[in-house]
Design a protein around this nucleic acid. Sequence first.
RNA 1: GGCGUCGUAGCUCAGUUGGUAGAGCAGAGGACUGAAAAUCCUUGUGUCACUGGUUCAAUUCCAGUCGAUGCCA
Length: 302
Amino acid sequence: MINLTHKNTLIVIAGPTGIGKTALAIDVAMHFNTEIVSADSRQFYKELKIGAAFPNRKELSAVKHHFIGNLSITDEYNVSKYEQDALQTLETIFTTQTTAVLVGGSGLYLDAVCKGIDELPDPDPELRESIKTLFYENGITALQSKLKLLDPEYYNQVDRDNPKRLMRAIEVCITTGKTYTSLRLSNPKPRDFNIIKIGLFTDREVMYWRINQRTDKMIKDGLIDEAFSLLSFRNYNALNTVGYKELFNYFDKTLTLEEAIDKIKINTRRYAKRQLTWFNKDKNIIWIDINNIKNIYDVLNF
RNA sequence: GGCGUCGUAGCUCAGUUGGUAGAGCAGAGGACUGAAAAUCCUUGUGUCACUGGUUCAAUUCCAGUCGAUGCCA
């Protein structure tokens, strides 16, 4: 049992994909008669209903959800915008409620709400293009030597073979005229609500079995048609997503349908593992076995 | 039934002119600040099918057995 002050409370529900976060969030939100804020970086996009495992119609009508299908795949969006949007939504919810539910599998997005992220510039599309061009034409070593000049300290810390991170750091240095290191403070921002973090887990075997089942169900529910209808948008970041990229390869005939489905399962498992790596680092998470899910109300009995 | 080919890591296979073996994939672990379902890093001991024989030494050569597969009947 957790002793809380008079402040409002945010109940965070985290965990790997397919573990049952959606159903639990709805249960908890109904219990507290409140609303749900989603922190799933793919459920934002209204075109990804099947592949991003949207809550179904019944679930959506049972509890008010925020950030489900609120964007289009062609929209530009990022964690920083999400942080602002989510905080504003929470503020609104807290005008009438003392409790709110935040649920999702995107660790970075969850953290953005819970502790904020540093003040950094949004990407400048033109600059980003030119840095990409540098990379495509001259390779990773060009990025490395550029970053070494701009921010030797960060250069010594980054995973230097990771083009995305090198590019972002270079981009920040150029647009601000400062080093990325000097801006990357990792200072948690104070929030004026209490946070209780719940993590859902189960045996690895069961988790993988659930993922496989869910993938097969998505296919049955029409994932192939959904992906096919989005084929012409494949270059948008929102479609660099498990479930779609593999089916695009099937449409390209570089994979058979069976291979594509297997690949979706494999990539989903890996995604789940990466999520666990992220969440396991967070010592504030109270872990609950999905077989004893009702225990959550002992934890939340405040 | 005869002849041939194959049987090595969870899977697909490489290799050892005889000194007990290595890739890809899968799996495992990790990182993570405006692309995050993204991106990146680390990680390979297994009765070399079984039983005998030759040999200082066999997964490797020989014989037999079993299993797979192809061709002929």
